[in-house]
Amino acid sequence: MKIEGTHELQARRERVFQALTDPEVLKRCIPGCEQLEKTGENSYAATLRAGVGSIKGTFKGNVRLEEIRQPEHYRMIVDGKGQPGFLKGTGAIDLEEQGDATIIRYAGDVQVGGTIASVGQRMIQGAAKMMASQFFTAIEAEAKTEANDPPPKHGFFRTALRWFSGWVRRRFRKKSGA
């Protein structure tokens, strides 16, 4: 199934790209991420608690980054398995500079199997979009900090608040632009 979306981050592209490829940052930002270890050049082993609706569980898998063209593009290959099923996918992430902001476009093809396929398939795209929102909101917070600052705190409420303020800002801008 195709998953795609666009996010606008109020942070500079270099910082966003750095955040997106830093395992420590990713571990903090990926919703439900319990573990993320570097296993080789641009490849990581991850443990993730995730689910769709009532179908939840722990997934273990590998993430590999390819086609890295700093700071504008990379391709991600994901392969994970858990009690509720498995997921496999590849996706391209493109970062576009827009003044001080960065537009992120992601497009991928994801295959799921097992219970998540037979129970949750029609909800997966929605769930994936929600997770992507959470993730990029967290990345934005990370990328806004300076290199030596302590990392921002995440968590459900902080992320929700940041997402909400971003949403208000975008709405406001649309209206004033119109």
Binding site: Q111, G113, G114, A117, S118, V119, Q121
Partner: peptide
């Protein structure tokens, strides 16, 4: 079943 043989209609919701 999807192309990978996954049962998509696995519940009475589907």
């Amino acid at each position: 079943y999807d192309e990978q043989g996954q049962l998509v209609t696995g519940t009475l919701m589907d």
